[in-house]
Design a protein around this nucleic acid. Structure first.
Length: 577
DNA sequence: AATGAGATAAACAAAG
DNA sequence: TCTTTGTTTATCTCAT
């Protein structure tokens, strides 16, 4: 599963635990990571621009009368780009979060350092730099204006500043044999403080920025003195450095991978976009999908105004996804139906969680079926039951896309509720609520996944649309063994909620073949006044008929309820458009 | 080609 | 009467 050069979170934790770092030091480390993440943000900037260009291209191609097929492709690729953005953000989040979590651990001082694994035959800076150059050149080749490269330059500078130079830091023989040394910050110090005597990466604002140090040094000289005396080559420094290495490598590795993907995508697009095409049929852009759809419907407002964003995004920087909103896609006529079934994949709703922030802000149609979404909404609720209206609210709250065209999707929601046996209407004192019959729900899934549970995770790849959306994320998650739910479960209650529900779904899906779901118990909601009414009749195995909704742990309770309320107050005012 | 699943549209009814 | 909620039917598209 995981490639050798990847550090698993467990490893990371282990390492961290065995280092001589205090939580405070880890905090400092964290800050440094944020600096690194700046790089990524800059890369995002670049992505954004690329995105805009792509859309422009798409437009041009439309006007030129492209084949729908190709339009689809381009649109799909655009989405892939969006996903890249999202992915980067999530990686950042995850990294931060995991670091934070480590920081809370008690750490015994003075332990011998861990022998370092050959953890990174990842990218060395030269490679990164090279890659980046290639990427940027590809970019500028596509666009000769070059006026928008400011962010690129920044990033380039950033990257190149960590260019090869193995001056310092000979602390890790393993690493050195791998030629990894150059990756790490210390070498940068030696570079820069020769050239810029007073700008030292470890010195700023009169403070030593060595992880966990923060010693005050009035001037640079005293800082150097301090550096040499306090942070000499000893076990402690070594260990700290090692941690930093790991952290950096992890990030760089990821960055490199994303860059590779990006480059491949761009290369591909570049070829594609310059290829002269002919053929009418600009309409029926069907699967420029969400983009065109949302665009055509979207009011001029560029960004889905996330009203009262109830669940505070874990990422402070969530503009990534928003980039992909409407922009200039208005030429596309209203695509009435079928944005494409391709992405109506039975969700592994891990995707929902992972992409949650994305969909919350970007007016992109979620690649999940209504049924899956409804189920998600219900399972996420504290009582595992929702009124229709609450389901509506969940949709609008969680997906910018569903803040428009209410009539349509609400109808679809009702339709799905009625149609699918897995949704059970239960009447209580104050009206009816909907619950999920998990067994029924699971029953339908194998049809799609065709019996091979191990494929569940990959199932998206068989769907043209979903591939770009999810593959990148999943691949990257898998590659880096990033715990699927880290982000979600730590981010906020709602996410945690979602995550656990999801975990169960996945488990359920995995174990589906054993069909031993009716195991866990009492499920039925605390609301005792409820009794099934109108349950859709259907010959059911008695065993199946019982024990739905049992799965969700109690730990995932959250004030999600209130969010519902919040949103209810927000009139969904896009009904008519 | 048949079939199933999902999306969308719409007709209709009951309840509030 | 109007709106919401629910059910049902029809049609389309896509995947298998």
């Amino acid at each position: 599963m995981m490639t050798p050069q990847v550090i698993t979170p467990q490893q990371m934790q282990q390492i961290l635990q065995q280092q001589v770092l205090s939580p405070q030091q880890l905090q400092v480390l964290l800050q440094q990571q944020q600096a690194l993440m700046l790089q990524q943000q800059q890369l995002q900037e670049f992505y954004k621009k690329q995105q805009e260009q792509l859309q422009l291209q798409l437009l041009q191609q439309q006007h030129a009368g492209k084949q729908p097929k190709e339009q689809q492709q381009v649109a799909t690729q655009q989405l892939a780009f969006q996903q890249q953005l999202l992915q980067m953000q999530q990686l950042q989040q995850q990294h931060l979060l995991s670091l934070q979590r480590q920081g809370l651990l008690t750490i015994q001082p003075g332990q011998p350092a861990l022998p370092l694994q050959p953890l990174a035959q990842g990218m060395i800076p030269t490679e990164l730099q090279q890659l980046w150059k290639e990427v940027t050149s590809a970019h500028s080749a596509e666009e000769s204006t070059g006026s928008n490269h400011s962010s690129l330059d920044l990033t380039t500078t950033c990257v190149s500043s960590s260019a090869p130079s193995k001056t310092s830091l000979i602390m890790n023989p393993h690493a050195s044999t791998n030629g990894q040394l150059s990756v790490h910050t210390p070498k940068r110090e030696s570079l820069s403080h020769e050239e810029h005597p007073h700008s030292h990466p470890l010195y700023g604002h009169g403070v030593c920025k060595w992880p966990g140090c923060e010693a005050v040094c009035e001037d640079f000289q005293s800082f150097l003195k301090h550096l040499n005396s306090e942070h000499a080559l000893d076990d402690r420094s070594t260990a700290q450095c090692r941690v930093q290495m790991q952290v950096v490598q992890q990030l760089e590795l990821q960055l490199a991978k994303d860059k590779e993907r990006l480059q491949a995508m761009m290369t591909h697009l570049h070829v594609k976009s310059t290829e002269p095409k002919a053929a009418p049929q600009p309409l029926n852009l069907v699967s420029s999908v969400t983009l065109s759809k949302s665009a055509s419907e979207a009011s001029p407002q560029s960004l889905p105004h996330t009203p009262t964003t109830p669940t505070a995004p874990i990422t402070p920087v969530t503009q990534g996804p928003s980039v992909i909103t409407t922009t200039s896609m208005h030429t596309v006529g209203p695509i009435r139906r079928r944005y494409s079934d391709k992405y109506n994949v039975p969700i592994s709703s891990a995707d929902i969680a992972q992409n949650q922030e994305f969909y919350k802000n970007a007016e992109v149609r979620p690649p999940f079926t209504y049924a899956s979404l409804i189920r998600q909404a219900i399972l996420e609720s504290p009582e595992k039951q929702l009124t229709l209206n609450e389901i509506y609210n969940w949709f609008t709250r969680m997906f910018a896309y569903f803040r428009r065209n209410a009539a349509t999707w609400k109808n679809a929601v009702r339709h799905n509720l009625s149609l699918h046996k897995c949704f059970v209407r239960v009447e209580n004192v104050k009206g009816a609520v909907w619950t999920v019959d998990e067994v029924e729900f699971q029953k339908r899934r194998p049809q799609k996944i065709s019996g091979n549970p191990s494929l569940i995770k990959n199932m998206q790849s068989s769907h043209a649309y979903c591939t770009p959306l999810n593959a990148a994320l999943q691949a990257s998650m898998a590659e880096n063994s990033i715990p699927l739910y880290t982000t979600a479960s730590m981010g906020n209650p709602t996410l945690g909620n979602l995550a656990s529900a999801i975990r169960e779904e996945l488990n359920g899906a995995m174990e589906h073949t054993n069909s031993n779901e009716s195991d866990s118990s009492p499920g039925r909601s605390p609301m005792q006044a409820v009794h099934p009414v109108h349950v859709k009749e259907e010959p059911l195995d008695p065993e199946e008929a019982e024990g739905p909704l049992s799965l969700v742990t109690t730990a995932n309770h959250s004030p999600d309820f209130d969010h519902d309320r919040d949103y209810e107050d927000e009139p969904v005012n896009e009904d008519m458009e």
